[in-house]
Design a binder for these strands. Sequence first.
DNA 1: CTGAAAGCGCTAACAA
DNA 2: TTGTTAGCGCTTTCAG
Lengths: 346, 346
Amino acid sequence: MEKITINDIARLTGLSKGTVDRVLHNRGEVSKKSYQKVMDTIKELGYEPNLYASLLARAEQRTIALLLPAHEPGTYWELAAKGEAKAQAAIKPLSLVTRQFNYNQYSADSFREACARVLESNPAGVVMAPMFQYETQVFAQELQTRSIPYSLIDTKLETPGYLSFYGIPAYKSGYLCAAMLIGEGPVKEVLIVRIMRDKGRQSDPTVLRRSGFMDYMLEHNPGCTIRSLFIDPEDPAATDSALDAFFDEFPGVRHIAMLNSRVHLIVPFLERHPIDIRVVGFDNLDANLDALRRGTVSALIAQRPEEQVHQAIQALADRIVFQRFPEKTDNYQHMDILIRYNAEDY
Amino acid sequence: MEKITINDIARLTGLSKGTVDRVLHNRGEVSKKSYQKVMDTIKELGYEPNLYASLLARAEQRTIALLLPAHEPGTYWELAAKGEAKAQAAIKPLSLVTRQFNYNQYSADSFREACARVLESNPAGVVMAPMFQYETQVFAQELQTRSIPYSLIDTKLETPGYLSFYGIPAYKSGYLCAAMLIGEGPVKEVLIVRIMRDKGRQSDPTVLRRSGFMDYMLEHNPGCTIRSLFIDPEDPAATDSALDAFFDEFPGVRHIAMLNSRVHLIVPFLERHPIDIRVVGFDNLDANLDALRRGTVSALIAQRPEEQVHQAIQALADRIVFQRFPEKTDNYQHMDILIRYNAEDY
DNA sequence: CTGAAAGCGCTAACAA
DNA sequence: TTGTTAGCGCTTTCAG
């Protein structure tokens, strides 16, 4: 069984290497007839291109753009950004590099502007974490007309022709959060702490989480009162006093959930008032893990954001270099449950 | 800054490509003088060979051997074997293939014999899940003298010069299991169900798990009595009656742990006797997941064995093709906690 | 001991 | 729309 090459299929079809190469990379300039003939015999013989030869002959570097919210240290997106490094190493031998473009996750303008920069850089592929429904649509449209493949992470917005999506199921994650918080036991009241400015966001992923959370409560603990409190992430003092005021008014609350990655914001308060409160949050930020280890936070639901970007980049690389499509378009990831005793090797 | 090639250094030294190649792979037939000259200018110019050109010119397929316990359907090692397929796809473009060699995990002879077959196949690298301390040492030794790189998965035995290890921390996993089983609450007695023939094994990974389990109990629940029961995986009827007898004698037991992947073996019994018992086991076998969904098993600790073999293969491929060494030698993986509400997307 | 030369399989520029 | 051709950088005879 000989390795079959581009020459073989050129000979078999009666065409030339050049033409075969053109259909292989469908860069047009080929008649329908030739195209079909080549495709058919490729399939028939099970031809697979030789990567080494290809890479050797090509020798130019393509780049994959990452379009992510800006990542201040200690935030969720910093975790995600870590996946870039891993992926870099993996795709470097394929003559691919990554390049990051950041935007302010609270400003649609900034997102639009970042999109423009991405397009300007003429990438071979794009990984994006979208926050704004409309702007993302427009951008996706543009990518498609330029036939630049793109993958989504974190939030799945309905955009045309995305290559693949990687993230956790938002609704289910809220459901799970509720289960971790109250189990089966009857609980009279719980508190959901929310972030102020999230209110204004167009596409807030915590909306779905909240609805999953609510449904679990309805199904398992219908009598429970669910209270909300909004805090300002920029203002720790205000957060403290808001919590103080809350517990003055509702001293019986023993269960708190936060449906975003910021549970660490309420940790100082909790540690200053040693009531025995069960707290469940999301994501393995260092500050969250510390609180978990100290026992202030009972459980975290985590989602390996670095894996999400890693996988998205890999999928794109496969697509770009090997013309290979991912097995599944929507890849819902496992939700990791972290407690004190399994957080160490995370 | 131009890429410098073998031609450059041929020109610079006044020798030919052929000679340069000879010193590059020190296969002799070169005068001392020429050798020195080449070496010097290589260092001077910081020459790095182009892998693709090299690989292309060489054009042979190398194979990575997997040395794993035989995997009957529905067993742990079947899960692990799944990782092979994924990795196959990833390394195929590098002209690498995998080939599996199986042994009976209860027979050292069979292991030794499998090792022999692996060596005979002259692999470019080896991934192994070792079960027998001494035999593994001997084999590892042999691999090292032939300078065949190898990685370990699942169980880390102290062998010389392994490339990397992938698995969960055994002791900690037992500790975690105990935590999942009894939490902080005081419990009077717990049952550990064990597999009969594991007793005779030389390198039983559950030994460490058991000691982690015991330590958690000592630290958090010192008064608790820990009972053991041995069952025969081949004999469901005997398993049932053993459990019957056990519960006749100790009707108060409400907590069961199994420190291996076989918790499904006791599920039929449990479902026939609807007492409210908390059960914790290991690994995401289908039968275990089913029991988890039905609520018979409360929690599973899982370790993504397919990822372990996938990563081990990748590491080897990187080593073989790109001469790259893994970032970390010992890669302890996260222990996944599975409960009903997060098992679906696993 | 050394050099010359023929590829490895694919890409891309240029002609036709 | 298609064919031709000159490499990409390295390996490997084979003749000297």
